[in-house]
């Protein structure tokens, strides 16, 4: 009897804590939606920050994340291919471990590294520095995805490819990557969703910019950095804009996540 009572109490505590957690998280989402939708208007997408819109910020954030993806995905994938297909020794294991650590390293540290590496020599904050900071964040994510997804490809496929007379690189490029493409796509999408929401690595690398610009050599518009500035600005108008921006950012991140998960579920 005592056992059953203890069981009841423990399980109730567990359910209760789950409820508390979910209530907090629901509260955040509800706030975000109600504040965000109220502040949302069409002109946000046609005006730049200087005129009270978000157009340049959304564009800037996307562009920097896109450049990071274009640079980071091939590098990360090649590194992942090395780890899974070529390196079987100690060296590959060390790289794998370090990449794992880098994936969780504080993003503000990446920002200060890029500050020394690019911003200081260059003389001012600029869009390239922001993109590079995001690239450094993305690479370990792509490495780990590639490494994991390639490990799921059955050995028989590799053997069959080699039996057909293909070189190892041909087998990798035309058979293995194809077999793993759904998982790789998902991983890259989730990685993109992760870096597009980053603020800390952009604060003193790209900064932000109120005006429309496509010049990556200047301070570059960033949605997240502007949210930080706007939220600390003591007017209601700025705060509403910050909520609208947060709402749009969250929608983008959640959308990409859901699309990514949909792909993997499709496969089984």
């Amino acid at each position: 009897m005592k056992r059953l009572i203890i069981n009841k109490i423990a399980l109730s505590l567990s359910v209760l804590s789950a409820l508390i957690g979910l209530v907090f998280l629901a509260w955040i989402l509800v706030t975000l939606f109600s504040k965000g939708i109220n502040s949302l208007s069409f002109s946000l997408f046609t005006q730049d920050l200087i005129n009270g819109g978000l157009r340049n910020l959304i564009f800037g954030q996307f562009l920097m994340a896109l450049i990071a993806t274009i640079i980071g995905v091939p590098l990360g994938m090649m590194a992942g291919i090395y780890l899974r297909e070529y390196g079987h020794g100690k060296y590959a294991n060390i790289i794998r471990d370090l990449s794992d650590i880098m994936m969780s390293a504080p993003s503000i540290i990446i920002g200060s590294f890029v500050f020394v590496l690019i911003v200081e020599p260059f003389g001012s904050i600029n869009g390239w520095a922001g993109s590079i900071a995001l690239t450094i964040m993305l690479i370990p994510i792509v490495v780990s995805t590639t490494d994991n997804m390639l490990s799921l490809v059955p050995k028989e496929l590799r053997e069959a490819g080699i039996a057909l007379g293909g070189g190892k690189h041909q087998v990798i490029l035309s058979i293995i990557l194809k077999a793993a493409r759904v998982g790789l796509m998902t991983g890259i999408l989730l990685g993109f969703a992760r870096i597009i929401g980053e603020t800390a690595p952009l604060l003193f690398t790209s900064g932000t910019n109120s005006f429309w610009t496509t010049d990556l050599n200047n301070a570059f518009p960033s949605l997240t950095v502007s949210i930080y500035n706007l939220a600390n600005f003591p007017t209601d108008k700025a705060r509403d804009l910050a909520w609208a921006a947060s709402f749009i950012l969250t929608m983008i991140v959640l959308f990409i996540n859901i699309v990514g998960r949909f792909f993997t579920r499709d496969k089984g």
């Binding site: 994938m77 090649m78 590194a79 790289i95 370090l98 990449s99 590496l117």
Partner: peptide
């Protein structure tokens, strides 16, 4: 193979340079 090896080494280089630069 060399490109793949260099990409993997890049991780080591990045982490080491973060440490050294800081």
């Amino acid at each position: 193979k060399k490109v793949a090896f260099s990409s993997a080494t890049l991780i080591l280089v990045m982490l080491a340079s973060i440490f050294v630069m800081l």
